[in-house]
Simulated assay, not measured.
Amino acid sequence: MESFKSEGNGIPILFISGLFAGDWIWGDVTSYFSKTQYTIIRLREPLSAYGHKISELREMLIQFLNESIKDKAIVIGNSLGGLLAMDLASSIPEKVAAIVVSGAPGMGSTNLGIGPPKMGSKEESKKWFGDLREKLFVNRQCVTDEQLDLVSEFFSDRRSFLNMIRLAKEADKYDAKSILPKIECPILLLWGDQDKVSPIEPWKSSIPLNPQIQLKVIENSGHSPMMEKPREFWESIESFIKSVLVHHT
């Protein structure tokens, strides 16, 4: 199976999700985008499917951008995907026109109070991710039992599970403040105001690090506002993209 799936014909937008969820977290948001104006590209699986080091994930994404994108793409990432969006903008600026970062790690560790996951049965895994859902979302109903089953089944695979643990530890030590000043393209920080995994406050304090940073806070939303408030998330991205295009034409 191909790692990426693409639809549309226009400005390329690459969506990268995080450790736990596949491309389905972007489903509602991408449904709003005109497929004649944009080419929507989504990484199919959680990042844990593709490696156990951030450097491995970076190289995979760099290879894709170099081989598949003629000019530049807009990169949108949630959680660890947001961190990778920043990493790509810094590493290959010639391929990244702008980035949207949501719920990224990199501003210190966070204790969610549910302990680390343990390798076990699918039911044990589903219970842990069910507890995690309570921490991640304001509106828990935006994640269905079927989606929870997908996540639990994915992490019943030992390799995927160990990759998740290793990547989570590495992300916990990542210093986003060291990379933000190096990014030359426009940056939109698009955050849920009730994100307990990656709280917004440290990111607000990072704004002076780069004059390219814009901040948009989505109210009554947690770690994944693209699922809880998809229309508002899309409207924020659309407005940002249009401002970027105007600035560069």
Rank of each mutant, 00 (worst) to 15 (best):
K229C: 13
S239Y: 03
M86P: 00
Q147K: 09
E153I: 11
P199M: 14
R44E: 14
Q37G: 13
F240M: 11
K53S: 10
P211Q: 15
I41M: 04
A49I: 03
L150I: 08
I92D: 06
Q214P: 00
R159W: 00
S205F: 00
R133M: 10
S109G: 05
P225S: 06
S206C: 15
S224G: 07
E219M: 14
G113W: 11
I179A: 05
D149H: 03
F20G: 05
S55K: 15
L215C: 13
D195V: 13
S198W: 07
D131G: 03
V246A: 06
I92R: 06
L65E: 07
L88D: 10
W191D: 05
T249Y: 02
Y174V: 00
F154I: 11
P199W: 11
S125C: 10
L188G: 01
L167N: 08
H248I: 04
A85R: 08
G18L: 07
S90I: 00
S90R: 14
P230T: 12
I165C: 01
L148E: 11
Q37R: 15
I54R: 13
W26C: 05
D157M: 01
A73W: 11
S91A: 15
A168C: 04
D131C: 09
K70D: 11
H223P: 06
A73K: 05
A89C: 09
S243I: 01
A171D: 08
K53I: 01
D193I: 00
P93A: 05
P202N: 12
P199A: 10
I25N: 01
G81F: 12
L43F: 07
R133V: 08
S236R: 03
S236F: 01
R158Y: 02
N9A: 12
M60I: 15
N163A: 11
T249C: 00
S90T: 08
M60W: 03
L136N: 05
E45R: 05
E2H: 02
I74V: 14
P116V: 08
G51A: 03
I114Y: 08
I54P: 04
L57T: 09
E123I: 12
P199Y: 10
E56T: 14
Y174H: 06
Y32W: 04
P93D: 06
L80P: 00
M227Q: 12
E238C: 02
E146H: 10
K242F: 03
M1N: 02
P46A: 13
I11V: 09
K196A: 14
R231V: 01
F233P: 11
S125M: 15
G82V: 05
I183C: 03
L180C: 04
L19C: 06
H52L: 07
Q37C: 10
L167V: 09
K72A: 03
K229A: 15
K72S: 09
G115A: 08
A176Q: 13
F161C: 07
E134D: 14
N66W: 10
P181L: 10
S243D: 09
L65T: 02
P105D: 06
W203N: 02
I237F: 03
Y32T: 02
I40W: 03
K35I: 10
H247V: 01
G106R: 08
S91K: 14
D28V: 01
E67W: 03
Y32I: 02
G10W: 02
S55A: 15
R231Y: 12
D87Q: 12
L132W: 03
L61T: 07
D23A: 14
K126V: 05
C185T: 12
H52V: 01
S55H: 13
G108Q: 12
E238W: 03
K169M: 12
E232T: 13
T39C: 09
